[in-house]
Amino acid sequence: MIEKIIIVTNNVLSDTSFRGNHRVDFIEGSLLDVLIKVRDYIHLGHRLMTHPLMGSIKPNQTPYKTVAITLKAYESVDLNSLILIENSIEITLKLLNNKPPRNWPEEVLEDYRAVDFELIKNALN
C-alpha cells in the first residue's frame, strides 16, 4: 500500500494498534456514527480504501467498525467511494430499523472488536 491513510474507527483495538503508524480518527459513538464520519470525509474528497461493510457480521449485530480512507482529499469526490458509503449507510439504517442491536455481554463485545480489528489489519497488510 502506497497511499497514506486515515483510520476511522470506534474500536479501541484498532485505535491503539494503528495510532503509531497512521492518522486515527477515533469516534466515541456507534457504528453508524463511524459510517457518517466516513461519509463526511468522502464528501470532502477523501477516498475509501476498505469496504465499509466488511465482514459478514451484520451492522445491527456488531457495534464496531473500522474503515480506512485516504489521507489525501482529492479535488473531486470519488463516485465509487460515494456510492459504497451511501449504500452502506442505507443498508445499516435498514437493518438497525429491522432489529436494533442488543446490549451484548463484554465477552461478546470483545469478540466483535477482535473480528473487526483482524479484518482491517489483514486488509491493510
Binding site: G55, V115, L119, N122, A123
Partner: peptide, 18 residues
C-alpha cells in the same frame, strides 16, 4: 470465495483465498 479475514476465510489447496 469468501476471503475477508478472521472467520471469513476460504482455502484452496491450503492457500488462503484472499
Amino acid at each position: 470465495l469468501q476471503s475477508q479475514g478472521l472467520l471469513h476465510d476460504t482455502y484452496v489447496y491450503g492457500v488462503d483465498a484472499k
